[in-house]
Amino acid sequence: MFSNPFFTDLLFYAVAGAILLTAILVVTVKNVLQSAVFLIISFIGTAVLYLMLHAEFIAMVQVMVYAGGVVIFMVFTILLTSHLGETSFTVKAPRMFIAFVFSVAFFGVMTKLLLKEPGLTAAVPHSENSSSLTSIAMRLLNIGEHGFVIPFEIVSILLLITLVCSITIARKDKGEK
């Protein structure tokens, strides 16, 4: 993205460092709401990484779905279940040990799989237009051989059904008052 690769590297390491730092803070901070805040910063960092790879649409979706949607509902839930946010919680040693084992195992498997892949190079930004809104839309709404119009319509009907169902559940019955 910059003419000089030094600046791209600098930006990458800065963003990656911020993601790692906030991700560690998410699990170490004692307060659930503070974890949620750091989680958002971590998600936005990921969106910046997508932007560096010219995947504008994915970056936008990352901000919309994760930072703007999921975490806000998490915060809302924390606030509604009032005591979770007010008292700091502690994790007992056995649980900490199990979590540690799982994360080390996951890290080990991921590194093994990545190193198995031959010819591993740095991520290359894709060409400018391949991930634009227009090309994704053309692909999703295409009725030809490479189109995804049927899955797209089914997913949108599913979302509509969810919306209608939630209103129906929330609605007061006639007798209820």
């Binding site: 805040v37 504008e56 936008m60 901000v63 930072a67 703007g68 975490v71 806000i72 915060v75 227009t134």
Partner: peptide, 22 residues
């Protein structure tokens, strides 16, 4: 000038809600 300006505006509106909640 962004080709996804309107979805992006919808997306960043969420931070307003977050600020009020926090």
């Amino acid at each position: 000038e962004s080709p996804v300006a309107i979805p992006l505006i919808i997306a960043v509106n969420g931070f307003g809600i977050l600020g009020i909640l926090l």
